[in-house]
Amino acid sequence: MTRILIFLFAILAAPAMAQSQFECKGKPKFSLSDGTNGCVLHLDKGMLNSTVSSGGDRPTRKSTQRAVELYVSVSGTYSKKMRTINGRIKELCQMYHPQLVAVHADKSARKIIVVMFWPGRVLGQAEETAQAVSYDVPYQGASMELNCTAPRNFGRRPG
Rank of each mutant, 00 (worst) to 15 (best):
S54M: 13
I113G: 02
V115D: 08
A67V: 01
E23D: 13
L12K: 07
S75M: 06
A18H: 11
G55Q: 07
S31I: 12
S33F: 09
D44I: 08
S134L: 15
V40N: 05
L12F: 14
R58V: 09
R110N: 12
R58I: 09
V137P: 05
D136A: 11
S50V: 10
L32M: 05
A126R: 13
L43W: 01
L48E: 09
S31V: 14
E91A: 14
C148W: 01
E69K: 13
N37H: 07
D106N: 03
M95K: 13
G87K: 06
L32D: 02
P15H: 03
N37R: 13
G141C: 02
K90Q: 13
S134T: 14
A130Y: 02
G35V: 11
G76E: 00
K62Y: 06
A105I: 03
Q99A: 10
P98W: 10
Q140M: 12
R66N: 13
S54G: 14
Q131R: 14
Q21D: 08
A142R: 06
L100E: 00
V74P: 02
R61C: 04
Q99Y: 05
V101N: 00
A13L: 15
V114P: 01
A67Y: 00
L92P: 08
S54R: 13
A109N: 04
A10R: 09
M17R: 09
H42V: 13
P119H: 07
R88L: 07
A126Y: 08
C148E: 04
C39P: 04
I113Y: 00
E23S: 10
G26L: 13
L100I: 01
S73M: 02
S108R: 11
M82F: 05
E127V: 14
D44P: 02
Y135T: 08
A67L: 01
G141Y: 05
E145N: 15
Q99F: 03
V115I: 15
Y96D: 00
T51S: 10
A14L: 15
Q21G: 08
D136C: 06
M17L: 15
T64W: 00
G38V: 12
F30M: 08
Y139F: 15
A142C: 04
K111M: 12
S75Q: 14
S54W: 09
Q21L: 07
V133W: 06
R88E: 12
E128W: 08
V137N: 04
Q94R: 05
E128D: 12
S20W: 12
L70T: 12
E127I: 13
